[in-house]
Amino acid sequence: MDAFLTSRPVADILGGLTNGVIYSLVALSLVLIWRSTRILNFAQGAMAMLAAYVGFAILAPTTNYWISMGVAVVAGIVLGGLTERTIVRALYGKPEINPVVAMVGFLLVLESVAAAIWSTVSRSLPTPFSIVDWQLRGRPVAMSPFALYEVVTAVVVMVVIAVVFQFTRVGLQLRAAALNPEVSRLLGVRVHRMLTVGWMLASGVGAITAVLVASNYFTGLTPTTMDGVFAFGFIAAAIGGLDSPVGALVSGVALGIAFQFVGDYLNSNAIILVALGLLIVSLMVRPNGVFTRRAQRRV
């Protein structure tokens, strides 16, 4: 049993799970925004990065991890709401490439502004738990207290989001506003407010994700920390289907594990190529995602 737990495939699965939940969270934030506003938020990663800087670069010397995390989440939520109220609101009903372009531009602004304020030098974040792997009879298991904390946090976030959407008044309104805005208005749902709330929730999730990513010893926090993570999160969301939160979660974890095997047995440079290949193949076979039930298209 111990030999099994410390074996190479199990190490890959555990390591992949730790990365995969991050992709799942990024994918989840993308899906939240896509479902409500039909916008693919290319600035998602950069917004999350900025929130993490607000939490950790401004407060780091004076406070502890948990307060900084809280500040980052609040900053993410505020930034999400502001973005929706200002840039995004001006683009509803415009050709679908306009918001894509705008969010790409916003990504550039956010990354440049962060680099102008905090420089491009990587900043390491404090970690609340040990990053040293647990040992089993002298051999490491590919899971540290910190990695476990990452997985648990991701699961908690997902459960909270699911409960909010499925069982609360605001969740009901969020879903209704996304599915049929006009009918929702006729029933008294303040649709514009719901769109803002959707962006706030997604950015809050993004902020938590960025803090988890930046806590990784090897990357740290830089203005471009989230670029690669965002690409993988997008691939997970696209494969799972931008309309499907469950698809986003499952394909995020699946990709994380698959990448770990590719990196371990092939070459770490091959990971992004395999990802691109998987994305292309899956989009060729199921253009609307593996987990989306029916092909729908609004003419």
Binding site: R169, L172, Q173, R175, A176, L179, N180, E182, V183, S184, L186, L187, G188, V189
Partner: peptide, 18 residues
């Protein structure tokens, strides 16, 4: 204008929001 993805009761819950 019923929301097809909602259950019957969810549609009613939406109606009684206000």
């Amino acid at each position: 204008g019923v929301i097809a993805e909602f259950t019957v009761e969810e549609n009613l819950r939406l109606g009684s929001l206000i």
